[in-house]
């Protein structure tokens, strides 16, 4: 393993320290327990937004702390959920008196740790609502699984809920908007090469030179199935079809199309996927009215991409367009 790291045990701490220095206009880093919060502190009277999860998905979540999006982010160790003692002070830091929404990706660890933190926050008389992001259609949402995973769709939830909160919507309203995004966003991903977890030192899975993993998550987990490598157009169809089908997209609908890089694939290739995905949606009579292409929810240096589609309406579109000023998303 070669990485631009010092001791792998310090990977998250070193990276966060650099991040906080580079973006000191936007964020503050609390060292122990570790969390990142808005530079100006909680906004009085505004619903606070907190998210978090294991590290290794940068810029998610710390890169989305700032005006118009998150008030605090809680990074765990690489691919490991943060602990309640980190999450609680982040909730406190985000609380401007109007309550706090926690945005949790649906993983057992994240769910359990946030649950405990929220119980503690409520004991301290902070009003807290929580939403679970579960956009990954690669995973069957049945009684016999932990439910669908939360992946790149999280960006849409955080952006749109963030805008709602900045507009002055109350906690129930912000939670409702977040739920509406969650109900209308789906993702599917593919890996061409596995990530290397720093403390592991080798690739998380082995892929042959002519194999790809379809239906992967963002933690270097194996995917749903391994198929022969194929051209971008064919691979993109494997991603778009289940997403569009699961959403039940019909003619005349309009969507946000988000092609997300897993960290190790060139941007130029993401645009190839975007072009094909867009054509596939248009062939279904769907209009792509908003777009996002880039590395936003990564899996270290994994090579691959995911396609996320969010069904839009006027309100969601307006909230997506609302100003945002964070390290990783700004307009």
């Amino acid at each position: 393993m070669k990485k631009l790291l010092n001791d792998p045990a310090d990977a998250v701490a070193d990276s966060l320290a650099g991040f906080a220095l580079a973006h000191s206009d936007l964020v503050r880093l609390s060292p122990a327990p570790v969390f990142v919060s808005r530079a100006g502190g909680a906004v009085t009277g505004k619903v606070g937004l907190v998210s978090g999860g294991g590290s290794g998905h940068e810029p998610l979540h710390a890169g989305f702390v700032g005006d118009g999006m998150l008030d605090a982010a809680v990074p765990g160790a690489v691919f490991t959920s943060p602990t309640p003692d980190q999450i609680l002070p982040a909730i406190q830091a985000a609380d401007g008196g109007a309550g706090v929404l926690t945005i949790v990706k649906n993983y057992t660890g994240d769910v359990l740790n946030f649950e405990t933190a929220v119980e503690l926050a409520v004991e301290e008389d902070i009003e807290v609502a929580s939403v679970l992001v579960n956009d990954d259609v690669a995973v069957e949402d049945s009684l016999y699984t932990a439910g669908r995973r939360g992946v790149a769709g999280t960006v849409a939830v955080e952006k749109i809920a963030g805008a709602a909160a900045y507009r002055g919507t109350d906690l129930a309203g912000v939670a409702a908007v977040a739920e509406r995004v969650i109900a209308n966003v789906r993702s599917m991903g593919v890996a061409l090469a596995a990530p290397v977890v720093p403390h592991v030192g080798g690739p998380s899975f082995d892929l042959g030179d002519d194999e790809i993993e379809v239906g992967i998550g963002i933690h270097g987990e194996p995917g749903r199935r391994r198929v022969p490598a194929a051209a971008a157009d064919a691979v993109t169809e494997m991603l778009v079809a289940p997403v569009a089908d699961d959403l039940g997209l019909g003619r005349g609908e309009r969507v946000l199309l988000f092609v997300n890089g897993m960290g190790g694939t060139p941007l130029s290739e993401l645009y190839v996927v975007y072009g094909r995905a867009r054509r596939l949606l248009e062939e279904r009579g769907v209009t792509v009215s908003r777009s996002l292409v880039g590395n936003y929810v990564t899996s270290l240096e994994m090579q691959g991409a995911s396609v996320t589609v969010l069904r839009l309406d006027d309100e969601l579109e307006t909230l997506w367009d609302a100003p945002v000023n964070t390290a990783a998303l700004r307009w």
């Binding site: 294991g54 765990g76 490991t80 959920s81 602990t83 309640p84 993983y107 660890g109 740790n113 405990t116």
Partner: peptide, 12 residues
């Protein structure tokens, strides 16, 4: 264990 482990294993 809750504050030290993280992940799913921590709370469990």
């Amino acid at each position: 264990l809750l504050t030290s482990l993280g992940g799913a294993a921590g709370p469990l």
